[in-house]
Amino acid sequence: MIRTQSLTKHYGRIRAVDDVSLDVHEGDVYGFLGANGSGKTTTVRMLLGLVLATSGTIEVMGSAMPRHTLDVLPQVGSMVEGPAAYPHLSGRANLSLFDAMGRGSKRAGRAGRVDDVLDRVGLGGVDRRPVRAYSLGMRQRLGLANALLRSPRLLVLDEPTNGLDPQGIRDIRALLLDLNAAGTTVFVSSHLLTEIEQMCTRVGILDRGRLVLQDHLDQLQRPTGRVLLRTPDPERAASLLVGRDVEVHADHLLVDAPDAAVLNARLVAAGVRVDELTPERHTLESVVLAASTASSDRMERA
C-alpha cells in the first residue's frame, strides 16, 4: 500500500529523514512511532506530496508519488499535524467546501456524505456555530471527518487522538478498527506507545530520521522466555529452582522457563503456593528504548 525506498529529506545540512524504507501492507493498521522531532511528520508530508523528497522513491497504492498525486490522493484520507478548518464557517460548511475541492467531486449527495462522516466521528448533532467556537476535541473529530470524506482506501493520520479525552480516544480507536475491518488500510503516526500498542498490527519505529525497526506488533511483543512468578513463598521457590536463571525481586521472581505450564506443575507438586504465573513478554517500550538513542529533544552538554 505504501512503499518507500531510501527516502531522504535534507533541510539545509540537517537530515530530517534519512534513508527510510517503509513497507505498509494492504489491510494493516500501521503504527508509525517516533519521538517528537524524529521526522514522522516530514515523512507523512512526503507520502502525501506536500514535501518533496531529497532522494528516494515513494509508491502509494502502486503509483509513484508525487508524480501521480492527482490519481492517488483522491483515494487517501489524511490528517497532518492537527486538524485545520476555516474558522468563520461551521463544521458542516467546512466539510462541504473540502468535499467540493479536487477532482471528480460531485454536487449530488454532498449533504448526505457530510452528514454521514459527521455521524461517524460523533459530531452528527453539531449545530451551525462556527469552527472558531469548537473545542480542541471537536476540531480533532472534524479533522477526522474530513479525512473520511469520499471513503478512502488508505487513511494517513498524524497524531489522530491529540487533544481528545479518554472517552474520545476510545471512540476514535473503535472507529479506526471498524474501518480497518471494512478493508481500509490505516497508517497512524504517534509518539504515544499505548495508542500504537492498542490498535496496530504492524509498527515502524523512527529515531532521529532513521527507521530503526519495522515489524509485526506480535513479533515485537513475543515472549522473552522468562516467566513472572508471584508467590507467598519466594525462598522455597528459589531453592526449588536452583540451576535455573532466577532473578529475585521484592515481590516477584523472574524465572527462565520456556513453558509456564511445566513450571507451574513443578511448583505445585513441590507445595509452593502460586499467586500469579505469567510468561513475560517484550514490551513495546523496552523495544523502543532499546532501538532508540536518547530523546531527540534533549540537548546534552557536550
Binding site: 502525501l48 483522491p74 497532518v80 486538524p83
Partner: peptide
C-alpha cells in the same frame, strides 16, 4: 490557517 495542506491533499493540482 493550516488549511493549505488539506487543499493540496484534495488534489486539484
Amino acid at each position: 490557517q493550516g488549511t493549505l495542506r488539506y487543499l493540496l491533499v484534495r488534489p486539484g493540482g
